[in-house]
């Protein structure tokens, strides 16, 4: 079972009021399915997935001075905020590295503009390359996976997990929340929530 936090503890830990929490819920900044109802000795209580909600509230608090609540809602929503971005713009604003861009273009053929889904692929590839978690050939495997599973990526919230065992690497794409148990020799190199990648990307683009 996931780590849960009660509403009361959450308000205390995040230092927010009931009003703020209800307001953010109304504005769709906090997804409906994070409100988990459970019976306790004081009656029905609401619980939240602890890590997710604390991270989300932290983000809302730091961003709410710069963005309106509606803009924030767009950022957290799973639908893309913009339709496409040109190659020029992409390199000029330094959103992804040239290496990642070249690899993407080698795989898909040269592109003049990128759709949001392509940008997300690029963004994930770029972060994996930058951290040194994957090498170039593994990066190609990732592009292949994202290309083949484009529909899955679009339709629901997924997680990307990268595992290596004795030099053999595997990418796994699974619906959220993923709960993988690994044998001791296998090593989890990277674990990305694509919904979070999407938020980060939207933030960079805005």
């Amino acid at each position: 079972m996931e780590n849960l936090i009660s509403k009361k503890d959450l308000l205390e830990e995040a230092n927010i009021s009931y009003g703020q929490l209800y307001r953010w819920k109304r504005k769709n900044l906090i997804p409906e399915n994070w409100f988990i109802r459970k019976s306790t000795f004081t009656g029905q209580e609401t619980f939240f997935p602890k890590d997710d909600i604390l991270l989300r509230i932290e983000k809302i608090k730091t961003l709410k001075d710069d963005l309106s609540l509606d803009e924030l809602a767009d950022m957290f929503s799973p639908s893309p905020t913009l339709t496409s971005l040109s190659t020029e713009e992409l390199t000029k604003r330094n959103i992804v590295s040239q290496t990642a861009l070249d690899m993407f273009n080698n795989f898909h053929g040269p592109n003049l503009s990128f759709s949001f889904d392509q940008l997300l692929t690029l963004y994930v590839l770029n972060s994996l390359l930058q951290t040194g978690d994957v090498n170039r050939s593994e990066g190609l495997d990732l592009l292949k996976l994202f290309h083949e599973q484009a529909q899955t990526l679009k339709s629901n919230e997924s997680e990307l997990i990268f595992i290596r065992k004795m030099g053999v690497s595997i990418f796994i794409l699974t619906p959220e929340p993923a709960n993988l148990l690994l044998e001791s020799q296998a090593k989890k190199i990277a674990h990305y929530k694509l919904s979070q990648c999407m938020e980060e990307l939207k933030l960079k683009l805005s």
């Binding site: 009931y18 009003g19 209800y22 009656g43 029905q44």
Partner: peptide
């Protein structure tokens, strides 16, 4: 009548 009322 309400079960829970929460507000500022």
């Amino acid at each position: 009548t309400a079960e829970v009322i929460e507000g500022d």
